Simulated assay, not measured.
Amino acid sequence: MNALQQEYFRQKLLRWRHELLREAGVTLNSLSAGGITEADLTDRASVETDRALELRTRDRARKLISKIDQALERISNGTYGYCEETDEPIGLRRLEARPIATLSIEAQERHERMEKVHRDD
């Protein structure tokens, strides 16, 4: 991967990270805006369900930010774009679709097949 491609993915990852952090800030502001004021039990349950869903979504985003940080570190140390299992280059199309990918498509498929085999036991 050349320097221009690395910079493209670095910028893409930074934009993605910034957007996730912005969304987390919006969530934090809305959750800290106050308690549940709905008197009706059904409305209250609906609001609580919505908040729980939002918190699960933010937890997933937190984990994704960690993976983005790891990808940015791999760009810094020159290992970005190479499969962790085979050391073969990960295709640009795969990185475009999933910039945090650490496995080539073939290695990912093997991993998923093994996971399925062991899950079925």
Results as ranks from 00 to 15, higher is better:
Gly34Pro: 10
Ile68Tyr: 04
Gly81Cys: 03
Ala97Ile: 05
Glu48Leu: 09
Leu31Asn: 06
Arg17Pro: 00
Ala24Gly: 10
Ile105Asp: 08
Thr42Tyr: 13
Ala71Cys: 07
Ser66Asn: 12
Gln108Met: 06
Arg60Phe: 09
Thr42Gly: 13
Thr86Pro: 00
Phe9His: 07
Arg74Val: 03
Trp16Ser: 08
Glu96Met: 00
Ala33Arg: 11
Ser32Pro: 03
Leu64Ile: 06
Glu48Trp: 02
Glu38Arg: 09
Arg60Ala: 14
Arg94Asp: 00
Asp40Ala: 01
Asn29Glu: 15
Glu96His: 01
Asn77Thr: 11
Ser76Tyr: 04
His111Ala: 12
Gly81Gln: 07
Arg62Leu: 12
Pro89Phe: 02
Ala101Trp: 01
Gln6Asn: 12
Gly81Ala: 02
Arg110Cys: 07
Tyr82His: 09
Met114Lys: 12
Pro89Met: 04
Thr102Phe: 00
Leu72Ser: 06
Ile68Thr: 06
Leu95His: 01
Lys12Thr: 11
Asp43Cys: 04
Ile36Val: 15
Ala71His: 05
Glu48Gln: 09
Gln5Cys: 04
Thr37Asn: 10
Asn77Glu: 12
Leu14Thr: 10
Ser76Pro: 00
Ala97Val: 05
Glu23Thr: 13
Tyr8Gly: 01
Glu73Phe: 08
Leu55Gly: 05
Leu55Glu: 15
Pro99Cys: 01
Leu53Cys: 08
Thr27Gly: 09
Ser46Ile: 09
Ala33Val: 07
Ser30Glu: 15
Arg51Thr: 11
Thr42Glu: 15
Val117Arg: 14
Gly34Tyr: 03
Gln11Tyr: 03
Glu23Pro: 04
Gly35Leu: 04
Arg62Pro: 00
Gln108Glu: 10
Asp69Gln: 10
Gln108Ser: 03
Ala39Met: 10
Pro99His: 00
Thr42Trp: 06
Ile105Val: 14
Ser66Val: 13
Lys67His: 07
Leu31Tyr: 06
Glu96Phe: 02
Arg113His: 10
Ile105Arg: 08
Leu103Gln: 09
Leu53Ser: 07
